[in-house]
Amino acid sequence: MFARAPSFWSAPGHFAATLLSPLGALVGAVTLHRMTKAGGAVPAVVICIGNPTVGGAGKTPTARALLKVLIARGARPFALLRGHGGREAGPLRVDPARHDAAAVGDEALLLAEVAPTIVARDRRAGAQLAVSSGASHIVMDDGFQNPSLLKDASLLVVDGSAGIGNGRVLPAGPLRAPLLPQVARADAVLVIGTGAAGAAVARAVAGTCPVLHGRIAPEDTRLAGARVLAFAGIGRPEKFFTSLREIGARVEIARAFPDHHPYAASEIAALLAQADASGVQAVTTTKDFARLTGPAFQALRPRIATLPVSLALDAPETFAALIETAEARAQARRA
């Protein structure tokens, strides 16, 4: 809906939000009504990683972490997502050797590094393909508000620094529907990172469902002490710049682009020229790097560093509890 989040989404009481709030009330009511529809079931355990707002919150790192836990438990999980930013409607199984971000989206490529991944705008059809391919568990990256597929458990992810913004529903604010009715349909809320906004969400939902905490942590410190030009086209680019500073990198130039920005080779060449002129290293996210594929980027990619990150839960055992809840429900509905 928006390439960048409007500034009034984070400003309670802003006149634009007030003006748009009647439309937001309508959008919220329609979304909540849609969420009450019965979804189609598949013979696999379905766990959804969603968020109550639009914008980046950390769903994909959370889905990757959950897939790894499932694999360690001996399961055969598949990832399932719409493939935002990709042209393929699916359902199709992602093959990183054949598919690029323009085809399936950058998030699909990141998930496919961990487990077999299905892209499908029709989530139920995608789940059926996963099951026919041998999936024991399906981890949905987004789709919480989409009722087409029956979910055995759902985890809502909230960014600790952004929370739910001004607390209003699209287009008046970032919420997809009113918060508490969404939370009532989830099994837990995961607040990623710290901040007053995330703490406020945790307090608001504490009586409705369990609240988990975690953070997005860099996987290495190779860029510690380096002077860098950092660029990112993700939901919240400033989080990437902060992560670089936290490992000791010196962010001399920071360039933010819209989420899922389709880079042109000329844009990347210009960024690299600026980095060279300033005597700094160009660096981006693994998600952005996944979009720099094809012959036009072949000579540019080796000159760009990345900062891999992963989800670190404060209480790692909570994922086991979520999985066991989902498995129990799946077993009960099959009985």
Rank of each mutant, 00 (worst) to 15 (best):
Pro210Tyr: 03
Ala5Gln: 15
Ala256Val: 02
Glu219Lys: 01
Asp276Ser: 15
Leu80His: 00
Gly83Pro: 13
Phe257Asp: 02
Ala265Val: 13
Thr208Gln: 01
Glu219Thr: 02
Pro308Lys: 10
Phe319Val: 00
Ala103Ile: 00
Gly198Leu: 01
Gly207Leu: 09
Ala65Pro: 01
Ala321Cys: 00
Ala230Tyr: 10
Pro147Ala: 10
Leu175Thr: 07
Val211Gln: 02
Val228Lys: 11
Val30Ala: 15
Gly13Ala: 09
Gly233Thr: 05
Arg236Gln: 14
Phe8Val: 06
Ala44Glu: 10
Glu317His: 04
Arg215Gln: 09
Phe15Ile: 13
Val158Glu: 04
Gly163Met: 04
Met1Val: 03
Pro210Lys: 04
Gly167His: 09
Leu212Val: 05
Ala172Phe: 09
Leu20Ser: 13
Val30Asn: 04
Gly126Met: 03
Ser7Lys: 15
Met140His: 10
Asp100Tyr: 11
Glu246Asp: 14
Gly193Trp: 03
Val158Thr: 08
Ala202Trp: 06
Lys37Trp: 07
Pro43Asn: 07
Arg301Ile: 09
Leu149His: 12
Ala256Lys: 00
Arg334Ala: 03
Leu26Lys: 09
Ala125Gln: 06
Arg203His: 03
Ala44Ile: 11
Leu156Ser: 08
Thr117Leu: 04
Ala130Glu: 03
Thr117Phe: 04
Ala177Phe: 02
Glu219Val: 01
Leu229Cys: 08
Ala270Phe: 11
Phe289Ile: 05
Ala177Met: 04
Leu244Lys: 10
Arg124Thr: 08
Thr286Arg: 13
Pro316Ile: 01
Ala153Pro: 06
Gly85Pro: 11
Thr31Asn: 15
His33Gly: 13
Ala226Glu: 15
Arg73Pro: 02
His261Ser: 03
Arg4Asp: 13
